[in-house]
């Protein structure tokens, strides 16, 4: 098992290298120089000043050398200095160690993604099992229809509809930001409650598509397992149906879900741009959007890399989970 783990970790190195290569070159193949954003805004800038600026950011060197320098820095998680007016280090903007946890962008995105993953699993798994054990009943047909609609639902549209319903009409929930204005004056339970109220809609929206996909997947996985001989044997020896399903079939049906969860990390992280933007949540996705719009190259490259590392971690965790759950792989 440890050999497998080691092999898996070693395999990640070329992948990581490739990710940095793509993040770097895609940005640098774009027309125009990254410093254009400064020079265009200031038409009076002299050629000398422009050159100085380019030298400052190392843009006068050949692109391969620039890549080398950047790579050497990001190994120490130093993504350079942001081009935005505050000129803060990129890492500081993503993970500001001086601020409380909830004000660090990476933590906010991470928290929302983990919570929505939990929501997805908590709902999708029972839903899928019930659908599978009641195949072709009215309930199964309703959930299948709902799943098709869930697949087709643009998440940003769902967000708008929920905002109109719960925010504009019913006034039940806040529709933007992570905290209320009076957050600082609240007690700790009050603060948590306030956060929770702000997080309900974003988490629901980000969980929605995954919910459809995972419950569908759980259904077909369960259908496959309950057709197998050992399940028939369990039934034949007179075990109650509840035990057959939840003790015997459930565990095997769960295995493919673990892989799916690992693979969905990438799309969850990518989706954070959309819902953080709609709900005005100060997370990594929102920062990415702002950086892209202002051509803040170091921040864009930094977040691309961090996003990819998170995805790789998700895949690795899924593999580990799979290994722990499946004795056949553990034995290898």
């Amino acid at each position: 098992m440890s050999v497998y783990l080691l092999k898996r970790l070693l395999e990640m190195i070329p992948t990581l290298f490739g990710i940095t290569l793509i993040s770097f070159f895609i940005i640098h193949l774009a027309p125009g120089k990254p410093t254009d954003i400064f020079t265009e805004l200031n038409p009076k800038i002299t050629p000398e000043a422009r050159e100085k600026l380019e030298r400052y950011y190392g843009l006068d060197k050949p692109i391969v050398v620039q890549y080398g320098i950047w790579l050497k820095r990001i190994v120490r998680l130093d993504f350079g200095e942001s081009f935005s007016s505050d000129h803060r280090p990129v890492m500081d903007k993503i993970w500001d160690a001086k601020k409380p946890l909830i004000e660090r962008r990476l933590f906010v995105t991470f928290l929302i993604n983990v919570l929505s993953m939990a929501v997805i699993l908590a709902i999708a798994i029972p839903l899928g099992i019930f659908s599978a054990t009641h195949q072709n009943t009215l309930y199964d047909k309703i959930t299948t229809t709902a799943v098709f609609i869930g697949f087709a639902m643009p998440s940003f549209w769902l967000a708008l509809l929920l905002m109109i319903l719960f925010g504009v009409h019913l006034h039940w929930l806040p529709i933007s930001q992570l905290k209320s204005m009076n957050y600082g004056s609240l007690s700790l339970p009050g603060q948590i409650g306030d956060l929770a109220r702000h997080l309900i809609l974003p988490i629901f929206v980000s969980a929605f598509t995954g919910l459809a996909a995972d419950s569908r997947f759980m259904r077909s996985s369960m259908l496959e397992v309950i057709r197998q001989d050992y399940v028939t044997v369990a039934r034949a020896k007179g075990l109650p149906e509840r035990l057959v399903i939840y003790r015997h079939a459930f565990r095997n049906a769960l295995l493919p879900i673990i892989t799916l969860v690992g693979l969905s990390v990438g799309s969850l992280v990518g989706g954070s741009v959309i819902f953080e933007n709609i709900f005005g949540i100060p997370g990594m996705g929102q920062l990415f959007y702002m950086s892209v719009m202002t051509r803040d190259y170091p921040t864009v490259m930094g977040i691309l890399t961090i996003g990819a590392i998170l995805t790789l971690m998700g895949n690795l965790l899924a593999d580990l989970g799979y290994m722990l759950a499946d004795p056949r792989i553990r034995a290898r």
């Binding site: 793509i22 027309p31 990438g266 799309s267 990518g270 990415f288 864009v300 691309l304």
Partner: peptide
């Protein structure tokens, strides 16, 4: 593998914006 581990929407957003 590499393409799959870069969050696609981030990548598209960055390239289109640039």
């Amino acid at each position: 593998d590499i393409m799959l581990s870069i969050p696609t929407f981030f990548l598209i957003l960055a390239v289109i914006a640039f």
